[in-house]
Simulated assay, not measured.
Amino acid sequence: MKNFLCLLSCIIFFGCTTNVSSEDLKNLNGYWEIEQVTFPNGETKEFTINPTVDYIELEGLKGFRKKVQPKFDGSFTTSNDAEPFTIKSNNGVFEFHYKNKMSEWKEEIKSISTDNFSVTNQDTLTYSYKRFQPINVTE
């Protein structure tokens, strides 16, 4: 019975694990809005309205991420500030690696699809993003 439960647990654990491939990384390009943060204790915080959106541009394994503010006409307000990153594979797990003059950190990429992605940082906070859909108000 113990062996059966152990086997069942392994199947569930590995069956629920999402593997990210190098082909999936191209889906990171574009505009993303945060959907939810999951804390280490399992609690979540939902984000229904986002005044800023993350723009990610990736070429090969190098890119940048910047905050932009969507406008009602479908355009964006932005600054020249961008956070450069590299993506590295660590034992088959892809990670964002950021480094600036003041800090250095990484985020593990947990999942990527065309419409969603999630990362977990070093504080074990998991950030879930969805592809940004602009609201275009025309007269």
Score class of each variant (00 low, 15 high):
S89Y: 02
S118F: 00
E35L: 14
Y55M: 09
Y127V: 05
F39K: 13
E46T: 14
S111M: 10
T17C: 03
E83I: 01
L25A: 04
D73Q: 12
Y31D: 09
R131Y: 04
D81N: 12
I112C: 01
S128F: 05
I34L: 14
T52V: 12
W32G: 06
E46S: 12
I34W: 04
T86D: 14
N3W: 10
L61D: 05
C6L: 13
I56S: 02
W32Q: 00
L8W: 11
E43G: 05
E104D: 15
C6E: 13
S111A: 14
T120A: 08
S9N: 09
L28N: 01
N80P: 00
T17M: 08
G42K: 08
I49L: 12
T44F: 04
S89G: 07
I87H: 08
E23S: 08
E95D: 05
V53Y: 03
K66S: 04
I49C: 04
D24Y: 00
K101S: 15
F39I: 03
F117P: 00
L8V: 11
P40V: 11
T38K: 15
T44D: 07
F13Q: 05
N100T: 12
K88Y: 05
T77A: 13
S22I: 11
F117D: 00
N27C: 03
F94V: 05
I87N: 10
G15H: 04
W32L: 06
K67H: 12
N29A: 08
K26Q: 14
D54Y: 06
S111Q: 06
K67T: 12
V119R: 03
L7E: 05
Y55N: 11
N27I: 00
E43Y: 10
G60W: 10
K2L: 08
T86M: 13
N41R: 07
T138G: 03
L28T: 02
